[in-house]
């Protein structure tokens, strides 16, 4: 499964290790990964928890397309995306993107591509519960890979 959405906590390093076992031994020359975790603050305000909503069928389709696009742009051996939904607390991993390739330039760039495109194309939305008990939707998005 190159892209997985989970509604329970996950260990990114464990996910990497498991996925690496599926790759052809000795074929990889470079591996790059990014792990996003929940912060306890955002825009100057303390945040106690975060709830991620998504559009499941479209998320699956869009994540698969992002991985296909990465394979078309760079020479890659494999990609992995794992993304949390549901409620999480500070320190919890939110997202893992990982790329395996023969050479480092492909791995570095493609890993950044997966993350930036995910943030602009895959339909996830964050709602923060603040330390004062209120809540708010995160409204700022990003432009994707440039």
């Amino acid at each position: 499964m190159p892209a997985t959405v989970l509604d329970t906590p996950f260990d990114p390093l464990q996910a990497l290790k498991q996925h690496e076992q599926t790759l052809e031994a000795g074929s990889v020359g470079a591996a790059a990964h990014f792990i996003g975790t929940m912060r306890n603050h955002n825009e100057g305000v303390s945040v106690s928890s975060l709830t991620l909503e998504h559009y499941p069928a479209m998320t699956a389709k869009e994540l698969a397309k992002i991985i296909d696009d990465a394979h078309a742009k760079w020479n890659l051996i494999d990609c992995l995306i794992v993304h949390r939904v549901g409620t999480m607390t500070p320190g919890d991993p939110i997202v893992l993107t990982a790329v395996w390739s023969a050479h480092r330039a492909d791995a570095f760039e493609a890993c950044r591509y997966l993350m930036e495109e995910l943030k602009s194309r895959a339909p996830f939305w964050k709602k923060e519960t603040l330390a004062d008990g209120g809540d708010r939707w995160v409204e700022k998005n990003t432009d994707g890979y440039t």
Partner: peptide, 10 residues
């Protein structure tokens, strides 16, 4: 057809 606000995952 779906409608949604700007995406904020990751």
């Amino acid at each position: 057809v779906a409608f949604f606000p700007p995406i904020t995952g990751g």
